[in-house]
Design a protein around this nucleic acid. Structure first.
Lengths: 240, 240
DNA sequence: CGACCCCGCGTTGTATACATTCGCGTGTAT
DNA sequence: ATACACGCGAATGTATACAACGCGGGGTCG
């Protein structure tokens, strides 16, 4: 086979479909027909079904009652709620972490990561947003990894997999540099406060911080500095 | 076909598999082989794959890295956490409901349901636990239905679908009648308080109540007054 | 003219044959 | 004796043919 994204045709098909959905080429509500997709992707129906199943597990597709799959549609409200929900779950994760306590090394390690993030916009030039986005995602991942509950971890992971609910989805939306810097500074203050909270076992504080932290994303979304080309929420995250 | 559980073979296979997993016949970690299951269920591999995919969506199976499916295993800790998580999500749902406000009819309707639940153990004889379980589930469902966030609703639904995280999973665990009655009375008080809270838009109170409410299930679990005959939901794994 | 039935096509459901992959064991060669 | 390689077998991956189902259009009968 030529230049497989993954190993199997099913994985490649899933990858392609996922990209198309995220880019908004397949808007919410679109019915996916096996045969059509099969010939577009140049594979048989079997891996297409397999791919659609996987995307349904991810929450990007829904099973139609009569059979078949439909691209899940997310309203603006859904996007807002998903961010809120991420805040709630991250808050729960942090609360449990705080209640259980964490080793000192973990605290120093994650503190170092936050210091690294500072470096992204300490420079007077324009901040390196790609790097920020990556490090920020690492921070959130590392934080989640400290949570003693595998169940909470996996459900949080699931919500974060929605393209617009990811912690760094709306970093890029801020148009004006001043406002963006303010957001980043606030975010960093919250990052440090979260570490402090779990280090000193302040569960309620950690939980509240995580929820408030998610509000930054929500505010960036609401600020809708995005242009008229906005059509599908999932598109919001598209780098652009 | 004879007496199909659902329409298609895939649905029937999913049903059968789900039952087997819940009953503990297929303990966590069991690798599911398509061919073996296909001949056991007397269908071809295709609907078996389809069924496994659906169960993976439900969270009962995991995809093995090398391909294929494995019965997801839940530790005691996972069960506790899933109940905690249900409390958190129900709390979020109630908070959002309270913040948004609900119509008066909805309040009276759900109040009537709580009154109905009273009837289950008003009788001096032994309470009708089957009916209680059913009505209790209705209460939780109806409450969730009031939530203005479809996303929160669906994630809550997802967690509740885990057999041991369902609101009425551990009602039956209490052995002694006195303790059980106490639990039920407490639960009813919380039910009413939740209604009151959403009616008067007390979001924080509603959220706290839902979390505490879930603790009843957790306590019933921890009390492990369960006898040897207990087999119910996926508890094979809990057994100790 | 209206309503109902039936046929045909499009779509998903199912079975099955064939391909591919990967691990494991055995055999041989050094 | 050890190491490497070959091959076999079990498992999933893939293609495809056929079945079943639903729905819409057109024809016919009342």
């Amino acid at each position: 086979m030529t230049s497989d994204k993954g190993n199997t045709n099913a994985k490649r098909a899933a990858y392609d479909l996922r990209q198309r959905i995220i880019k908004g080429e397949l808007p919410g509500g679109t019915r996916l027909f096996e045969v059509a997709l099969a010939e577009e992707l140049d594979v048989s129906r079997t891996p297409v079904r397999e791919a659609m199943s996987r995307l349904a597990e991810e929450g990007l597709l829904e099973r139609a009652p009569s059979g078949g799959f439909v691209v899940r549609s997310f309203t603006h409200r859904d996007v807002v709620d998903a961010i809120e929900l991420r805040g709630v779950l991250e808050g729960t994760a942090l609360r449990l972490t705080a209640e259980t306590g964490v080793a000192g090394e973990a605290i120093t390690a994650i503190s170092a990561l936050v210091d690294q993030i500072d470096a992204c916009f300490a420079d007077p030039g324009l901040p390196d947003l790609d790097l920020y986005s990556e490090l920020n995602a690492s921070f959130h991942d590392d934080m989640a990894a400290l949570c003693p509950s595998a169940i909470v971890q996996s459900e949080l992971e699931r919500v974060k997999s929605l393209p617009f609910a990811s912690p760094s989805a709306f970093v890029f939306r801020q148009r004006d540099r001043a406002g963006m810097l303010q957001s980043l500074i606030l975010a960093q203050a919250q990052h440090r406060a979260m570490i402090e909270a779990i280090a000193s076992r302040e569960g309620a504080r950690a939980e509240a911080l995580a929820r408030e932290h998610a509000r930054i994303a929500r505010n960036n979304l609401e600020a809708k500095a995005f242009g008229a080309d906005y059509q599908h929420p999932a598109m919001a995250l598209v780098i652009e």
